[in-house]
């Protein structure tokens, strides 16, 4: 399955590394990553597409535990050619 998610996080030292490490350790491969700084809020806006045979919730619940993640929204999941909406979490 391929999953996409949007993350808004504090721009703390190593925040991006934490997200990437959690993604790797929990068994998800990154297929696309877009990171933009938001100067006035000192935050990062991240859009990430990952692939795994594991359920998306396995990653979402772990990412939620990272201190400094302000918002996390599952956008959609794709299985083969079939796109389907995923449940949003925040």
């Amino acid at each position: 399955m391929i999953y996409s998610m949007h993350i808004e996080a504090n721009d703390n030292p190593a925040m991006l590394e934490r997200i990437l490490q959690t993604t790797r350790v929990r068994g998800f491969h990154i297929r696309h990553l877009d990171v933009r700084g938001h100067e006035s809020k000192e935050s990062l806006r991240i859009t990430m597409t990952v692939e795994s045979s594991r359920d998306q919730n396995r990653l979402i619940t772990q990412l939620h535990k990272i201190s400094g993640i302000m918002e996390l929204t599952a956008l959609h999941s794709i299985n083969g050619d079939n796109a389907e909406p995923a449940s949003a979490t925040a």
């Binding site: 703390n12 030292p13 190593a14 590394e17 934490r18 490490q21 350790v25 535990k65 990272i66 201190s67």
Partner: peptide, 15 residues
């Protein structure tokens, strides 16, 4: 800080 990422609940570098 980098070494600590996977073995802590959270970690800080005071800048």
């Amino acid at each position: 800080l980098g070494l600590s990422l996977s073995i802590t609940k959270h970690s800080y570098l005071v800048e």
